[in-house]
Write a protein that binds this DNA or RNA. Structure first.
Length: 194
DNA sequence: TGCAAACCATAAC
DNA sequence: GTTATGGTTTGCA
C-alpha cells in the first residue's frame, strides 16, 4: 500500500508517496490539488494507495526535509529513496545530480561526461525525475549557463537558485562514483537575470 | 544570433 | 524490433 502525505508549509504544498517507508515520488507546488495530482498520476507501481492528511512521524520528518531543501538550507538527513524500479542509467544520473552541492550548478553535458551517454539523455532523466526537489534537478543548466527547462516552470527554477546563492566565485570538482564532476557557482546561471 | 545535424536513453507502438 | 521524443550541444554561416 502506497501512503501519500500532502502538507503545506508557509504557503507551499509538498507531497510524498511512501511505499514500505521509502519515497517513491515527491513533488511540490503553490497549491494542493496540482501537487497531489502530480504524485497520484505518477505512482511507479500499480498498487493500492491512500491519501493521509495526518502525517506519521516518519512522514513528517521527510516533509520537513523537503521544506528545508525548498528553502535552500543544508539538510544532513539522508532521505530513503526507492530507486530499484528505475533503469540503471537513470539511477546513475540522479545519483550524480544529488552530488551537486548547494550554491553550485552543473550542465547536462557535464553530467553526461561523468556518467556516459549524451546530454539529451541526461535531460530526459531530469524531466522524469520522480524525487523533486530531493534530487536537485534545478541545479542542472545548459552549457551556456542559460537555464534550460524545469518541470514546475522556469520561474520556480530561478527562485530556487536564488535561494541557494552562497557567493562562491570559482568552479570546483566533486567526486561521485569514482568520477569527478565539475560544478560552477550558481551565480553563473543568475548572472544576467533581474 | 540562428539553424541544422549529431547525440543517446526511454517509452510507446 | 522500430520509431518518436526530449529540460542538449556543437559547428557553421
Amino acid at each position: 500500500m502506497i501512503e501519500i502525505y500532502p502538507q503545506n508549509f508557509d504557503g507551499t504544498w509538498f507531497a510524498v508517496a511512501l511505499l514500505d517507508r521509502k519515497i517513491v515520488r515527491s513533488w511540490f507546488g503553490s497549491s494542493e490539488a496540482p501537487t497531489l495530482k502530480n504524485v497520484l498520476d505518477n505512482l511507479p507501481f500499480d498498487v493500492p494507495f491512500e491519501v493521509f492528511h495526518e502525517p506519521t512521524t516518519h512522514a513528517k520528518n521527510i516533509l520537513t526535509a523537503l521544506k528545508s531543501v525548498f528553502d535552500g538550507k543544508e539538510t544532513s538527513q539522508e532521505l530513503p529513496l526507492s530507486t530499484t524500479h528505475l533503469p540503471a542509467y537513470t539511477k546513475k544520473v540522479l545519483k550524480t545530480t544529488m552530488a551537486i552541492p548547494i550554491g553550485y550548478v552543473t550542465t547536462y553535458g557535464t553530467i553526461a561526461k561523468a556518467v556516459g551517454g549524451g546530454a539529451r539523455a541526461v535531460g530526459n532523466a531530469m524531466a522524469t525525475n520522480p524525487y523533486a526537489p530531493i534530487v536537485p534537478c534545478h541545479r542542472v543548466v545548459k552549457s551556456d549557463f542559460k537555464l534550460g527547462g524545469y518541470g514546475g516552470g522556469l520561474k520556480v527554477k530561478v527562485d530556487f537558485l536564488k535561494r541557494e546563492k552562497r557567493g562562491f566565485s570559482s568552479a570546483t570538482d566533486v567526486e561521485v562514483g569514482g568520477a569527478l564532476l565539475r560544478v560552477y557557482p550558481v551565480e553563473f546561471a543568475l548572472r544576467d537575470m533581474a
